Simulated assay, not measured.
Amino acid sequence: MESDSIECVSSIDEIVEDHEILHHNIQHHPHPRHAPHHQFSSSKPHHNGTNNVNSISNIVGPTAIAPAASVHELLECPVCTNSMYPPIHQCHNGHTLCSTCKIRVHNRCPTCRQELSDIRCLALEKVAESLELPCKYYKLGCPEIFPYYSKLKHEGICIYRPYNCPYAGSECSVVGDIPFLVAHLRDDHKVDMHTGCTFNHRYVKSNPREVENATWMLTVFHCFGQYFCLHFEAFQLGMAPVYMAFIRFMGDETEARNYSYSLEVGANGRKLIWEGTPRSIRDSHRKVRDSHDGLIIQRNMALFFSGGDRKELKLRVTGRIWKEQQNPDANMCIPN
């Protein structure tokens, strides 16, 4: 199979002559060392093997804001190091672990190797109810403090939590803040970087029928002090082969709503235009694709736009990004 060819140009005021870029097979690259990576990491647990609740109550009262480190350690599962939530299990010697890890260790205490029964550590669960803890992303800027049993729910939606790598087409496990991920995309995934709010890409494929399910991240754009990712997909929509282009915003959903973008393809007196709001990279590229939230071009129409004998795909996608004057309604509906 011949390699795909992408031509691209990005400029602020106008689209100028484009240049070709060859896209090779997608591969996972090692974690970069030179870029700053702002990410919360919890300390390793140090379990003392006892559950002396009287000593705990002497350290932390029911209105404590910053509990002592020993309380944090007692509430960390010794197997997965995550905070424990009811039911908290214990062995006959008083060693505790979470309900998930009780199954993982085949019902044997990881500390003393004694067989675990169904004993609940009710005292430790009561202590947890009295605690108020900072969000685990406080080092990334989150100022919030929550009751112990509310903290986990918040952390799942905290706007300060790290982002997953937005690179499409691979299972990249890298996480971090936006500056780190931009450097990671440039250096490890070799994604094209452009400054400007307009763009012009041409996707060329000598035999488009060879590609039935593929995805590419074409470019990362820097404009208005933010970063945007342009994606291009080839997949089956029902029985029809289609192409889809869309943009994701490298930031949170609430920030993404401040921007809009347009995409256009056309030739031979016909054109298709899409206008929308970029989706946050909190939504995976697959979720955006499956929601059809972008410019969709059926293959027959794409070949018509390509001209010639309609056997070779030469699809030019142009577009621009702009900033809205006012924030859209906070209750704006986003496709699932």
Rank of each mutant, 00 (worst) to 15 (best):
E2I: 02
I6M: 08
E7T: 14
E7N: 10
I12W: 08
D13C: 02
E14A: 10
E17I: 03
H19Q: 11
I21P: 01
I21E: 12
H23R: 06
H28R: 13
H28M: 10
H29R: 04
P32I: 15
S41V: 14
S42F: 02
P45I: 05
H47A: 03
N48D: 15
T50R: 10
N52A: 11
S55N: 01
I56T: 04
S57R: 12
I59V: 07
V60A: 13
P62Q: 10
P62Y: 06
I65E: 06
A66S: 08
A68N: 12
E76H: 13
E76L: 15
C77T: 08
P78N: 05
V79C: 13
T81G: 00
P86Q: 07
I88E: 11
G94I: 09
G94M: 11
T96R: 14
T96S: 09
R108K: 14
C109N: 01
P110T: 10
R113M: 13
E115W: 07
E115G: 04
I119Q: 11
C121G: 09
A123D: 11
A128K: 03
E129N: 07
K136I: 14
K136C: 06
L140S: 13
L140M: 12
I145T: 15
F146N: 07
Y148W: 04
S150C: 09
S150G: 01
K153H: 09
H154Q: 08
H154F: 04
G156Y: 11
I157C: 00
C158Y: 03
I159L: 12
P162M: 03
C165R: 14
C165H: 09
G169S: 06
E171C: 14
H184Q: 04
T195H: 15
G196P: 04
T198Q: 15
H201M: 12
S206G: 01
N207Q: 15
R209P: 05
T215Y: 06
L218E: 06
L218S: 05
Q226S: 08
H231K: 12
L237K: 15
G238L: 08
M239S: 14
M239D: 15
P241A: 10
V242E: 11
E255A: 05
A256W: 07
A256T: 02
N258D: 08
Y259L: 01
S260A: 11
S260L: 00
V265A: 09
G269A: 04
G269I: 06
K271H: 09
S284F: 00
K287R: 12
V288I: 13
R289H: 08
I297L: 01
I297E: 05
A302M: 03
L303K: 05
F304K: 04
F304H: 13
F305L: 02
R310T: 10
V317A: 04
V317Y: 01
T318W: 07
G319V: 10
I321A: 07
W322R: 11
W322S: 04
Q325E: 03
A330W: 00
A330I: 01
I334Q: 06
